[in-house]
Amino acid sequence: MTSEIILQAIVTGLMMGLIYALIAAGLSLIFGLMEIVNFAHGEHLMLSMFSSFWLWSLFGLDPLFSIPITILLMAFCGIITHYFLIRYILKAKMLIQICATFGLSIFIRSIAQLLWTPDFRNVDKPLLEGRIEIGSVFIGQPQLYASLVCLVAFFGLYWFVTKTETGLALQATAQDRHAAEILGIPSNKMFAIGWAIGLGCVGVAGGMMANYFFIFTDVGINFALFAFVAVALGGFGSIIGCLYAGIIIGLVESLGGLLIDPSFKLLYVFVIYLLVVIYKPQGLFGRY
């Protein structure tokens, strides 16, 4: 076990972590806004990867260029989700909210399985290919660019939420729905925007991952699990917390896999999750 291998694992974990962070940020935004955990988040990620794949396979559009389309599609998907499902369960009990989004996840996954079969697919010869070598560390180009784009998107999201007027309106709605409505911020519209942005983040992550990751109908489960963990770790509703949490998870996953046993990656993340939620239930940066 040389230091190069460990360095390599750290770089890999870091790159993965940035992607987890962006996926988790979408989840966190939605949760912060209406206190609903989107259990279909992984399936939305799967949809965005498939959107990227089909745009490539049917229209020959490279995943890199189809990202804007994927983002728009996912934002649309978010608005639809809000309009047809979430709108009705806003006031329901938490149990019903969990069951409803869980039902959505089963529905999307099995429809995808029916339409596209559970086969593994991948994008052949994307523009981003190959790897670069820095010192003794190999960095896959698609992975590198994916994580950089995710980082940029993450800070874009952060800027949007903290600096623009719409973002501040989102925050106001998150803090107190009724007070915000008195000030003339329509909460229903804000929720729809929140869903659109939350799933737009997933669209960025999914579109970039389509460059190098296998695309299949169950792909979202693991990512969604890590995103849930990241959101709990960073603190429900905190966006900047997701960045740190995502990186921690990425590092734990890759270093744990290297130092102990790669087949139990999930367990290490799980242990971290348990430790954090037991000893610091509000997460690292949580406001709840």
Partner: peptide, 15 residues
């Protein structure tokens, strides 16, 4: 997967 599609749909409608 057809039964799962129905399950998901039923679950959402019930909720």
């Amino acid at each position: 997967a057809v039964d799962l599609i129905l399950y998901g749909l039923i679950l959402m409608i019930i909720c």
